[in-house]
Amino acid sequence: MLDLQPVTSETVTSMAVQMLGMPMSQANAGATAALLNGLAADMQALRKLPLGDEEPATTYAAVEGQP
C-alpha cells in the first residue's frame, strides 16, 4: 500500500456534500481535515495490528434485553 497522503479541506468539502449531503464551510472543513490527519497518525499502530480471526466486540442480542 502507498503511504497515506494528508486529507485536505477540499477532500472533506467534497465528501461532506457527496457522501453526507451536508455542505460544510471552509473553516469547518479545514479543522476537520487537520483532525483527521492527527487521528490517522494515532491509529497507525492499530491498523498494523494483526487481527486474525477475531470478531468485533459488540453487544447485539437477537432478543431485546437477553444477551
Binding site: V7, V12, M15, A16, L20, M22, T32, L36, L39, M43, L46, R47, L49, L51, G52, E54, E55, P56, A57, T58
Partner: peptide, 17 residues
C-alpha cells in the same frame, strides 16, 4: 463522520485481543 467503518470494526476486534 469521515472515519472508515473498517477502522471502527478493527478497533472492536483489537479490543478483544
Amino acid at each position: 463522520l469521515f472515519m472508515p467503518a473498517v477502522d471502527y470494526l478493527g478497533a472492536l476486534r483489537a479490543r478483544r485481543i
